[in-house]
Amino acid sequence: MKTRPNAQKQTYLDPKFKKWATVQTRLFLFVGHDSEAATIIYSIFLLSKNPDALAKVHMEHETVFGSDVSAYDELMEHPENINQLPYTHAVIKEILRLYPPANGLRGGQTGVSLHDEHGRSFTLPALASRKGPSVIPPARGWRRFEHGARQCIGQNISLMDFKASRVMVLRQFDFHDAYAEYYALSP
């Protein structure tokens, strides 16, 4: 605040702004953490159910990071290599499409409106309406982080974290569901 160019330098934060900014920061951190955790869990589950896709992910990781089980040193020395994983990136996008941890709000339902604190009402166009050119993405199109002014500001770091966690975890552990074993043990 001391480096502000205006003549009226503020030496304190406006309490209303501080309260608003604190809430928004907490929300930002919680949403990112929750989204990444859910996506990591779904990726382990779905890859354990699809051994062909898992084998392709393993092959891609070995090609980029070598055959050493732990890719930690390679990631630390060459973090840019995380961007050389197109198949892993595609798998993550598909998992996010199938199991989105959060949804965007670009299309509404007929008769539903949003209201702001000033009493103004906003009605979003319904996804089903397809007359004329539409700015609404297809109902099954890729939308997880959205686009434009409403895109998630954390999408790049989230995708990087998803890929790095896949490289670190999938190389060191084998996963399979244990439901059949569990139910066999249950009376």
Rank of each mutant, 00 (worst) to 15 (best):
K56G: 02
Q10W: 05
Q151H: 04
W142C: 14
H118C: 12
Q172N: 10
Q172W: 01
A53I: 07
R106A: 02
P137H: 07
A37K: 00
L105K: 07
I41C: 00
K49I: 09
L185T: 10
L29T: 10
M76Q: 12
A126R: 10
L127Q: 12
T39V: 02
V23Q: 14
E80D: 04
A149V: 13
Y42V: 00
P187M: 02
K93P: 10
I153L: 14
S70H: 06
K131Y: 12
G32V: 03
G141L: 03
A90C: 08
G154V: 04
N50R: 07
K93T: 08
F173S: 00
V23R: 12
N50D: 10
G32M: 04
A90P: 06
E94M: 06
L105F: 12
S67C: 09
L96G: 01
H61C: 11
Y87T: 02
D73A: 14
V69M: 11
S165A: 08
H147Y: 08
R120Y: 15
I153F: 02
Y42A: 00
G119R: 09
H176R: 12
I82M: 07
F65C: 01
K163L: 03
M1A: 11
L54I: 00
T88S: 05
D68H: 11
D14P: 03
I95P: 00
L85C: 02
S134K: 08
A184Q: 09
E74G: 01
T88G: 02
Y72I: 06
Y179D: 06
S158A: 15
H147G: 06
A139Y: 15
E60K: 03
K16H: 12
L47I: 05
Q151L: 13
V57Q: 02
I153W: 01
A184V: 03
P137L: 12
K9R: 14
Q109G: 04
T11R: 13
G119F: 04
C152P: 03
Q8Y: 11
R106I: 11
G111H: 05
H115I: 15
Y99H: 11
E80M: 00
M59V: 12
N83Q: 12
Y99K: 10
H118F: 12
P79D: 01
